[in-house]
Write a protein that binds this DNA or RNA. Structure first.
Length: 340
DNA sequence: AAACAGGGCAACCGCTCGCTA
DNA sequence: GTAGCGAGCGGTTGCCCTGTT
């Protein structure tokens, strides 16, 4: 037996909203609010519309402070970063972009950004000095604001989640990391967490170019190696290895997209790794070799608040002159800057 | 000028989640 | 514990506009 419909579909109007309907809905909500009941609202407002339709119209179009039109570069970055990190969680992404709706962002991604990042030409084999300088500018700008979780004065502990984010105390052992690829390189980011789902639609073609590294679930140590294609493989891990960052190099195995700039940053501690990718575009690959997460709730997303904070720090970096936050070591190999 | 193709976007559909009785 | 309900979300559809042939 199916579920009862939320409204009488035969008696509700569908399709585009007329200015009169818009006015009615806006006027009603201005006067009475939504009343917490969208199903009943259209009747009260004198609209022959489904409650869900009213809700959508209000949220996506009539609500005050809705921003329409061009997305800024900053917004692009945030969208890309979050998409790479959490996937198509448009409502979460929208929450980081005041005035933008999830539907707007979803449409923008599907029509513009996805193409933008899948249609890039190959990039030069080696970055020039100037390009290297640009990379460093990117990494500095994106990370120049200390992650609040890492600050000893951080006033609020991370929220709980089913994925057991690190406790405040445990974060004292966290590592903040950031990696920037060479201009000729791309970043592949492998997630063993079901919460960070592979983006099937995004850059699916690049999978063949991804290095075949596999995180260990048993607490492998950090490492940095070079594979036989001279690609830099950066593997970061502690007790549980969730991500590897493989920097695909040049030559026959070059990734066709050749991201102009790729950057990732995040927090690593014993049980969690929160990752941000920036600007250039990413791919994600769910690993089949790690069973650790298999039994955990796939619908949960770990560390949303952390992501928000990361984004917040990234967005505010222009007004903050802090240098790159503390790090325990640094290496610079072949155009790769690795803080760990 | 007409036909066609493709892109952009608003709106719909169906599902999950969370609350409540 | 569970069934019913509404809210919210993400994927998809379909219409309209614009550019091309």
């Amino acid at each position: 037996m199916g579920r009862a419909p939320c409204c009488d579909k035969a008696n509700v109007k569908r399709g585009p909203w007329s200015p009169e309907e818009d006015a009615k809905l806006k006027e009603f909500i201005d006067k009475h609010g939504t009343g917490g009941n969208w199903i009943a609202l259209p009747q009260k407002a004198g609209l022959r519309r489904c409650g869900k339709s009213c809700r959508l119209r209000w949220l996506n179009y009539l609500r005050p402070n809705i921003k329409h039109g061009e997305f800024s570069d900053q917004e692009d970055k945030i969208i890309c970063t979050l998409y790479a990190t959490i996937g198509s969680r448009w409502s979460i992404i929208a929450a980081q972009l005041p005035g933008r709706t999830d539907n707007d962002i979803k449409n923008y991604w599907n029509t513009k950004l996805k193409k933008k990042f899948t249609g890039l030409p190959l990039l030069p084999h080696h970055p020039s000095h100037q390009q290297r300088t640009q990379q460093n500018a990117i990494i500095t700008s994106f990370t120049s604001h200390a992650h609040p979780l890492l600050s000893s004065s951080s006033p609020t502990p991370p929220p709980s989640s089913t994925l057991s984010p690190p406790s405040q105390s445990s974060l004292s052992n966290s590592h903040y990391f950031a990696s920037l690829t060479g201009l000729e390189q791309s970043v592949s980011y492998y997630s063993s967490s079901p919460n960070l789902q592979p983006q099937e639609s995004f850059l699916g073609s690049m999978r063949q170019y991804e290095a075949s590294c596999c995180s260990s679930s048993d607490g492998s140590s950090s490492s940095s190696t070079t594979n036989n294609n001279n690609n830099q493989i950066c593997s970061l891990g502690k007790e549980r290895e969730y991500y590897d960052f493989s920097l695909c190099g040049n030559g026959a195995d070059d990734h066709p997209m050749g991201f102009p700039r790729s950057f990732c940053s995040g927090v690593v501690d014993g049980g969690q790794r929160l990752v941000l990718g920036s600007v250039g575009g990413w791919s994600q690959e769910k690993q089949s070799c790690d069973q650790t997460w298999g039994a955990e709730n796939p619908s949960d997303y770990a560390g949303l608040e952390e992501i928000k904070q990361l984004i917040s720090s990234a967005s505010n970096c222009s007004s903050n002159n802090n240098s790159f936050l503390w790090y325990e070591g640094k290496s610079d190999h072949d155009g790769v800057v690795m803080y760990y």
